[in-house]
Computed example of a mutant assay.
Amino acid sequence: MLPSNSSRVGAIIVLIVSLAGLAIALYAYFTPLTGVTGTLGALIAIVACLVLAVLALLLAVVKGRGASIALRVLTLIGLAGTFFAAMLLHQWWVCVAMVIGLIGLILDMVRPSHHARATHA
């Protein structure tokens, strides 16, 4: 009933916003006069966005229920931590990206399970 690509929309949203957050954090880290140029906080935000991108890719391809739950929890912790770091750095666009990522994670949580998709096919 549902195409396989529509079940991965949430993970794709998380991937896109984590890459957007990465681009914004890189800009803030390297551009002079952003207020966080060369700081450890901006570097941590860069690494966190990279980790979120990897988690989103794994979330899109994982099949097992336990693995998907673990990845969702790790993604939620990553989104919340990156949001908090971005707030401390006054990088509001990264905050916006993490909120959109939370929406994508919620969409991923409400997708039908692999077993449910197999029985409807």
Rank of each mutant, 00 (worst) to 15 (best):
residue 5 N to L: 07
residue 34 T to N: 15
residue 46 I to Y: 00
residue 110 V to M: 09
residue 22 L to T: 00
residue 36 V to Q: 02
residue 111 R to H: 12
residue 9 V to H: 07
residue 78 G to K: 03
residue 48 A to H: 03
residue 89 L to M: 05
residue 82 T to H: 04
residue 3 P to H: 05
residue 11 A to R: 00
residue 6 S to V: 11
residue 12 I to T: 11
residue 32 P to F: 14
residue 4 S to N: 01
residue 83 F to Q: 07
residue 81 G to L: 12
residue 67 A to N: 15
residue 33 L to Y: 03
residue 22 L to C: 13
residue 48 A to I: 11
residue 40 L to Q: 07
residue 71 L to M: 01
residue 13 I to P: 00
residue 93 W to P: 05
residue 61 V to D: 01
residue 70 A to Y: 07
residue 90 H to R: 06
residue 14 V to H: 00
residue 47 V to F: 14
residue 1 M to E: 11
residue 43 L to M: 08
residue 4 S to P: 09
residue 15 L to W: 06
residue 26 L to I: 07
residue 44 I to N: 03
residue 94 V to D: 06
residue 92 W to F: 14
residue 10 G to D: 05
residue 108 D to N: 14
residue 88 L to G: 10
residue 55 L to W: 05
residue 39 T to G: 03
residue 40 L to V: 09
residue 16 I to T: 01
residue 86 A to T: 09
residue 92 W to V: 10
residue 57 L to I: 08
residue 16 I to S: 04
residue 107 L to K: 05
residue 48 A to T: 07
residue 80 A to Y: 15
residue 54 V to T: 12
residue 44 I to P: 01
residue 81 G to N: 02
residue 113 S to M: 14
residue 117 R to Y: 14
residue 64 G to K: 10
residue 45 A to W: 01
residue 53 A to F: 03
residue 39 T to R: 10
residue 120 H to K: 09
residue 5 N to E: 06
residue 35 G to V: 06
residue 113 S to W: 09
residue 38 G to D: 07
residue 71 L to Y: 02
residue 4 S to H: 10
residue 33 L to F: 04
residue 11 A to V: 08
